[in-house]
Design a protein around this nucleic acid. Structure first.
Lengths: 251, 251
DNA sequence: TTCCTTTGTCTATTTATATAGACATTTAAA
DNA sequence: TTTAAATGTCTATATAAATAGACAAAGGAA
């Protein structure tokens, strides 16, 4: 829609967002978009300052933020190298489990246990799971790491008494699919998923090691067993600059 | 995960995001989450200042930002009323068209024409549509309005020569489904969708009337005709605080 | 080596953000 | 009408962000 080439200044100075942070976000997006992929390093600070129409020191602040995220590494004389530039494609389809669709994109996949609680579920959870209002659910909280980098935090609700001890199985197996199997559920399918985006809150920033102001993609999903009973309600929040959600309808 | 009640201060002062903007985003999220739904108005400025641990003037800056977005309206003596608090649920399923899944949530649905262009398509578009690299596509740009509020901007690619004049049909019908029908496509299905989130750029802010720093949900979708030929590649960007994407697998 | 480029560090100045307090204005309720 | 509670508007001050310039230090290439 814009007639200008992308060299123009895309900085908004009345937004309540510091210029260095806007530049850091632009650069992160450009890196993830592969703009500097060939060389593997950023243009010089002076060149970036000219490109964004700001002072060199402002660019330095942006680069410092990216360096503290582990995205780039600067060294005098050599320039600023790009460390991480891939965005994981997370499949969202009728039958995808966490690990199966990712194994070709990463070498090390973990789903770690954070906590588990037995508590009455909120109204929306009960509705999603077709439970009577106030029913007790087992709530399991997890963090998923890909090659050691946290990509998502999940809060999973399971109806009791059927899955009242699924957390024990999960802690042993580190897999929800296997934990289900240990509870007698051979297979399950995704019934629905709702996706929103917003700024990460304090807890999400801590678990996902996100910079303040970062964005999370939140998915609300319901899984059914093969008899059509709702067996899991999950709220998963992905670090949006590390993933893209890939929705497929083939399965 | 946090043990504190939500009254605690969630403001990050080294984030590069102004405190008033953080508060505005928190309040918008709280409004959309229905926290003040019962009364239909915000707590007083002093109460909010105490809740966030900031000065009253900082809260005022946040409320001014929300007022300019049309989310709230303040008047002396009466307080700050909430104007808009609903988040549209946009269905993403195998067979959903823009208007069909939304008609029960809004009274007025429009899809307006912005521009159309005939041009060689980029590599990723050609791949998605199974075209030879550099093939010419018809590019249609649209804005979708729900009850007069813009919720998404779309850029749709159609292969030529088959759909070289679909823009004319769209301008007459204001519906992609009907425009397809005029081109001899009786029905079509969603083949894949990829979803990401990021900050809105200048053009998106203008078309969607978004505040600086706002978030958009971006979907990349491919539609096939019933013979399995890719006939449409669409990039749609939704104002994230006005919608949630509802993925369903029933159809 | 020498030269040039690149990042790192310092000082200084200007502008934007945030806090603090005082007081006016509007509205609804006692 | 009186009172209380709410937003609106001003002044003043402290802190953070951004700009500007100068020079040091490290790395790569001729």
């Amino acid at each position: 829609m814009s007639a200008l080439p992308k060299a123009g200044r895309v900085i908004d100075r009345k937004s309540g967002v510091a210029v260095w942070r806007q530049i850091a976000d632009e650069l992160r997006a450009a890196i993830n978009g592969g703009e500097f992929g060939g060389e593997g390093k950023l243009p010089g600070e002076m060149a970036l300052a000219e490109r964004f129409g700001v002072n060199r020191h402002t660019v330095r602040a942006a680069i410092a933020a990216l360096a503290s995220e582990g995205v780039v590494e600067a060294s005098p004389g050599r320039g600023t190298r790009i460390i991480r530039n891939m965005r994981l494609k997370v499949p969202i389809s009728r039958r995808t489990r966490f690990s199966s669709g990712l194994s070709d994109q990463a070498t090390r996949l973990e789903m770690s246990f954070v906590s588990s609680t037995l508590a009455p579920a909120a109204t929306d959870v009960c509705e999603a799971l077709n439970l009577e209002n106030g029913s007790t659910c087992l709530v399991l909280e997890t963090v998923s790491l890909v090659d050691g980098i946290p990509v998502s935090v999940g809060r999973h609700h399971f109806p009791t008494p059927r899955f009242g001890e699924i957390d024990l199985h999960f802690r042993r197996e580190r897999s929800i699919t296997k934990a289900f199997r240990a509870c007698g559920v051979e297979d399950y399918v995704r019934a629905s998923t709702e996706i929103t985006a917003r700024h990460a809150d304090e807890d999400e920033r801590r678990w996902l090691k996100l910079a303040p102001g970062a964005i999370v993609l939140e998915t609300l999903a319901v899984n059914n067993d093969l008899q059509g009973n709702a067996i899991q309600f999950s709220k998963t929040r992905f670090a949006s600059d590390r993933v893209s959600l890939r929705v497929g309808f083939e399965g």
